[in-house]
Nucleic acid binder design. Sequence first.
DNA 1: CTAGGTATTTAGTAATGCTAAGTATACAGC
DNA 2: GCTGTATACTTAGCATTACTAAATACCTAG
Lengths: 115, 115
Amino acid sequence: MEDRLAQQLKKGVLEMLVLELVCRKATYGYELLQRLKEGSEGLFQLKEGTLYPILYRLEDDGLIESRWSQGEGRAAPKKIYSATDRGRQARLRRQLIWVEFKKTVDSFYEGGNES
Amino acid sequence: MEDRLAQQLKKGVLEMLVLELVCRKATYGYELLQRLKEGSEGLFQLKEGTLYPILYRLEDDGLIESRWSQGEGRAAPKKIYSATDRGRQARLRRQLIWVEFKKTVDSFYEGGNES
DNA sequence: CTAGGTATTTAGTAATGCTAAGTATACAGC
DNA sequence: GCTGTATACTTAGCATTACTAAATACCTAG
């Protein structure tokens, strides 16, 4: 029953984290999948069908932009994403929202209400 | 654009918080609306149509139970919710999941990756 | 030439918060 | 009495977003 909670908690957070990672370093989908998985002990072990739509949303919103990289060597072509100025601004706003959100939620656990 | 983020972040959290509040003190829908609003500076200022379905889900899942309180004084009847044993166990598991989730997300912000 | 790793795309489903409207009781002010 | 406001619960329908599953395509190793 609590697997559902973990799934729902990701809503919004995933897009926020993808923006964060792209802001830190231009990258492409497949690498993001690995970075998210490795950096989260499997919590963010996404299937491709979860990640790519997030990238398309971010691009539609003008927060990231992409260019095709014709395979270095002879590898499959990659779509390299990098952050736009608007993306970097949004990144900061989102991090603030996350910090405030955490604080608010935690206040309900800490708040010494009746038991 | 970032209003959407705050909205999405609530997914899962709302049900978790309602369970927490009911575990602390048997209560009813309308009072929960006020407690959530007042305890969050408006972040959890829900409409009834958001809260009541959460209560029904928690009850369907056997985590809380309800009884009708025929209006004290002459007020409208209230549906009083209280936590079940399973609800109290779930409450603890969910709080742990929340703590771990926060930690994982924060690690992506703190993690000194490339800039 | 088959298997597996790399890399992207898309269709369809499920969960959950949102808006909006409706029902009903009690009380205060005109 | 009538109107508005506060209390209190219910329901229908929509939007967003993560999930599964499958398809496409290239390259390397055996």
